[in-house]
């Protein structure tokens, strides 16, 4: 078999989505962010929305999401992405508008913007990366840090007496009347990646059909922040995080496949 045979169309089994450029990613090896970026790029292409999508990136490790996907982007102040997205979508209703946010961004400093955008039923999709820690600033406690989990600001483990409880904001989102689709997924196995893709696709489609707000949480690894190897981080996530953050659809009133 020559090289030409290998790259001939009938032998092509996988191709990077066109929207993803070749800029080297700043993410740590093993981090979930990169996989989710790829899924978003694939879905935008599959929906044919390349020229009609506006992304809003957060403050957090994904702040530079705009460097990797060749769509239009706005970079929001810490936690404010849903407010930006609200306005963009209200003013350009035929555009696909999504935010991409970490747990500190979405469930702590931006709690108000998140809950109110979802509760207004803005026709936007929120992609929520929950890695139970502040990755970008070097591993401090997040609102989603597990009880007993060690971080640099709870070095003896999260103690509810001192630090309060993990915040399950996705459960809260599912109780809001403005949301039409709320789901929790992960990207640690091929199967889970396919499920996560389906969920994000549904969220994007629901926003374009004007059915309400959607939130897709991706329970994610931050192996650097957790101080584990990528493989150990996946193990730890399955063992500990999936217990607190149970995967599956929490709400679906969309009637979409």
């Amino acid at each position: 078999m020559t090289e030409n045979d290998i790259i001939s169309p009938e032998n092509l089994v996988y191709k990077k989505p066109e929207l993803m450029n070749d800029t080297p990613m700043h993410y740590c090896p093993g981090c979930s962010h990169g996989v989710v970026h790829k899924l978003i790029a694939e879905i935008i292409e599959e929906m044919g929305m390349e020229e009609k999508t506006v992304g809003v990136s957060p403050v957090g490790c994904a702040v530079f999401a705009y460097r990797y996907l060749d769509i239009d982007w706005q970079e929001a102040a810490h936690g404010r992405a849903p407010a930006l997205a609200t306005a963009i979508k209200r003013l350009w209703p035929d555009r696909l508008v999504f935010t991409y946010q970490g747990d500190g961004d979405l469930a702590c400093i931006g709690t108000a913007e998140t809950i109110h955008a979802l509760n207004r039923g803005e026709h936007i999709a929120i992609i929520f990366i929950n890695n139970a820690i502040y990755g970008m600033t070097g591993g401090q406690m997040a609102p989603t840090t597990l009880i007993g989990q060690k971080t640099s600001t709870c070095p003896y483990g999260r103690d509810p007496e001192l630090h309060g409880y993990p915040l399950n904001i996705t459960e809260i989102a599912s109780t809001l009347r403005g949301t039409c689709y709320v789901s929790r997924q992960s990207v640690d196995t091929v199967g889970s990646i396919l499920k996560a893709k389906k969920a994000i696709r549904k969220a994007f489609e629901a926003s374009m059909k004007g059915l309400g707000s959607s939130l897709v949480e991706i329970v994610s690894t931050c192996n650097s922040g957790w101080k584990l190897s990528p493989a150990e981080a996946n193990e730890w996530m399955r063992e500990k995080m999936f217990k607190e953050y149970v995967k599956g659809d929490l709400k679906d009133t969309t009637n979409l496949k």
Binding site: A77, A83, A85, I88, W92
Partner: peptide
């Protein structure tokens, strides 16, 4: 013209950011 009562002034100004960033008079 769109009129939205926001949840706070923090949200209002960030809505202005988003809408004006999309080229609109906001």
């Amino acid at each position: 013209m769109v009129v939205v009562q926001a949840e706070s002034e923090v949200a209002s100004i960030n809505m202005v950011y988003g809408g004006a960033g999309a080229g609109k008079r906001v």
